[in-house]
Design a protein around this nucleic acid. Sequence first.
DNA 1: TTGTATGCGTTATCAC
DNA 2: GTGATAACGCATACAA
Lengths: 361, 361
Amino acid sequence: VARKRLQPTSVATGAVPTVRTVAALAGVSIASASRVLNGLQASTATAARVREAAAKVGYVPNAIARSLQARKTGLLALAVADIGNPVYVEMMAAIESVAKQADYQLLVHATGADPAAELALLGRLAQRYVDAMVLSPLRITDGHLSALHRSPVPVVIVGQLPQEAPFDNVRADSTTGVALAIRHLASLGRKRIAFINGATDTVPGATRLAAYLAALTEVGLPADDGLVEAGDFQYAHGRTAAARLMARSAGRRPDAICCANDLIAFGALQEFLARGIRVPDDVALVGMDDTALAQMAFPQISSVSLGAAKRGVIAAELLLSRIADPTLPPRRETVPPELVVRASSAGAPAARIPARRKASS
Amino acid sequence: VARKRLQPTSVATGAVPTVRTVAALAGVSIASASRVLNGLQASTATAARVREAAAKVGYVPNAIARSLQARKTGLLALAVADIGNPVYVEMMAAIESVAKQADYQLLVHATGADPAAELALLGRLAQRYVDAMVLSPLRITDGHLSALHRSPVPVVIVGQLPQEAPFDNVRADSTTGVALAIRHLASLGRKRIAFINGATDTVPGATRLAAYLAALTEVGLPADDGLVEAGDFQYAHGRTAAARLMARSAGRRPDAICCANDLIAFGALQEFLARGIRVPDDVALVGMDDTALAQMAFPQISSVSLGAAKRGVIAAELLLSRIADPTLPPRRETVPPELVVRASSAGAPAARIPARRKASS
DNA sequence: TTGTATGCGTTATCAC
DNA sequence: GTGATAACGCATACAA
């Protein structure tokens, strides 16, 4: 016969109240207290006494204990490369709004585009401190795939994933997106369309470069290595790349630039402003992601929306449905891109030049 | 005598392994297994067997169960109004880096500048799903104060707090910050210095307006109601307010503008760009917060740094020290502001105009 | 309807 | 050094 060695928590303690505190104060068992607190069957009398007791001591259930019992935390994780990039902020807001509807909170991780950090995160997932995760990796390694296979908690990948990988996946169609941009610029009569890419060794970088080259062929323009710049997906790269492009001799200078994201496009635009290069008269500009930054700039930047918010919503919904039913087959959703034409690429160059000269002189 | 009705978890289950799984596989008690896994005293033999078993089944401790036992979650919360504002991103990154050092993760809440949402958050804090929270409210109500008093988990307030409120508090000195901006603009010979404020019914808004008026007096300039605009702390307000200010008759137009934050300043700058108003020649511009946006703009925007990153670091450190010792007396730290002069306000207007005209023609 | 007792997965205490 | 077991705070199957 085992005897209890420790006494249960005493009633009148200065510490945080638990169910026992409430139950003792109400003069009922903790089971009854718990039932009342969770709105289950109970007599009106006890219900009243329990509620009164709970209110009196300011009882609030402990989320951790509840999580342990329920085997769920009510937390979703979101892991993105760069929390400073507005496109991720947008996605985050979208995910959060869906998550909130289902009483989930969002835990945000910034991986700094570091694959090792992403892997560490996937590994820690086994600790089950969240119920599921949205991961938006810049590149997928074998390590990622095996970690995904091992993971006991559902993960939705936002971004490209190998065809056969059996995971929930929502992706943008940046190939079509780049094509939209190039066709648009070509339709304006631009002949020397440059491309400022991000990191070529990332999936988006590689994809967008290939799409750019394919689109050039499609519209019947020759490719020119000197018109392609690669670096990272940041503002500073946009500035320096734009400077390099415009430093070329007159006949080889681009008359249009497609950028791999809005941060780069914004950088390029500021460089043009600094150099007195007119947009879109001298050079037309199209960005990608259609973030707030594109609308905040002057002139406003045309941009290809890759549906960040929509991808976020879908990712969250996939996650919630998988939590509800883990046996679901892997799903793959693709959000179509959309070109938003703004001042940075509107109108034909020749037609615009006189009008703008007049206005600014 | 109570008999166990349910069997303990069987060893060979397809489910996630627990300590019992490992212990059974290693042929030791769960106590020994736990000790080995936590690096406590154990014989080399058992240690080896436990580690081998753990590796074999891929054991990872459950963070929730561990939290319940340890009575700590390893999570810090950060609640800010607007996750889209770069100044909060900066603060978040700073807090996260300190938190990570101490093995804490950051849970970010966006309150949308809604006091009710902030209060709800403070209330949920009693659920103890985080160990502590950094709250940056735009205004402090009595509800906030009483919720803070009730809160069983430590909260650090970033922002102004009533003198007598006994809570850890780190604040910017935006009064001095505004004074720095006004003195700077006045020293450039500007006579009609406007102020584009955010929401006047917020603490920062009210403080900065008062500071603006005081600073004007200090530098011997008359106040002019027509030179003060109020709205919110967003980009769009900056644009419309700037447009209104510049629509005044020639003699009453401002020759300098101080903005309550960088988002507003950036909006104003884009409006000037759109209208062909030269910065700083026609109007000098100073923002506040010294965010990345100020450096990304062209011309780069002078800005008063209120030390967002530093405030974040201090807030995190206050939190960690309070978690370590809850009996500490309330502390109050103030981060001094710093004016960063950039092109948007550099040089005297008359001296600069010819030079810039030449360059841009 | 209500109370008793067990388990969620972990760590810590205590006796051996 | 090791094993049995209480406890963290909660929810619930089962018995009364």
